[in-house]
Design a protein around this nucleic acid. Structure first.
Length: 195
DNA sequence: CCCTGATTCGC
DNA sequence: GCGAATCAGG
């Protein structure tokens, strides 16, 4: 793939939003995160204040070849010294706009079922699977959630008896296979109003 | 181990 | 210009 205008634009957008290079790469497709990072640098947009390694002003000497002992000129960026207001991305593990766990309303007890199952009709098999998985869940905390850990909450958020599934997620999904099954229920018996 | 961005350098 | 390999760090 090549860096078409549109792809570059999307890159800029996402980068600006604080998306990680790998996320951008996934979105674009056909490129690796390295490619994205490389492009970002070539485009001149680079450090944001985010991610793991953000503020590093020093160069890293590389023990590979030494044809360039010393850059004669330390060139400074012609950009304003005062850093422009940058959109600080929410440093939430689930950096994306996923409607999860951030519920305004606390559910007193019982099943927190985060992503409202669209219908009450979830295959018994799926539910059984969920129950089974819950036993195996890694019981990770909010802080431990990553892109590839199932973000399905288990238990009552109001108590200590609460954790996230944490099993490996299904590609592209926020939940593990079992939880995806109950989270994303297709339009089931919902053939109401025909027009 | 998972991830993050940064840099280099052959193409 | 591009991006894999590599580095450096959380």
């Amino acid at each position: 793939m090549s860096w078409t205008d549109e792809r570059v634009e999307l890159l800029k957008k996402m980068w600006g939003e604080g998306q990680s290079a790998s996320q951008i790469a996934k979105e674009l497709g056909g490129v690796t995160r390295n490619a994205v990072i490389g492009k970002v640098h070539r485009l001149g947009l680079s450090n944001r204040t985010t991610g793991a390694t953000a503020a590093k002003a020093d160069a890293k000497p590389k023990p590979k070849a030494e044809p360039k002992p010393a850059p004669p000129k330390a060139e400074a960026k012609p950009s304003p010294k005062t850093e422009p207001a940058r959109p600080v991305p929410a440093a939430t593990p689930a950096s994306e706009s996923r409607p999860i766990s951030a519920r305004k309303q606390i559910i007193p007890a019982g099943q927190p079922l985060p992503p409202q199952p669209s219908a009450n009709e979830i295959s018994p098999e799926a539910l059984a699977k969920v129950n089974e998985v819950e036993k195996k869940s890694k019981k990770i905390t909010l802080m431990e959630l990553t892109e590839r850990t199932c973000k399905w909450p288990v238990g009552d958020p109001a108590t200590e008896d609460f954790w996230f599934c944490g099993l490996p997620v299904q590609q592209g999904k926020p939940y593990c296979e079992a939880h995806v099954g109950v989270a994303f229920q297709p339009m089931s018996a919902r053939r109401d109003r025909r027009r």
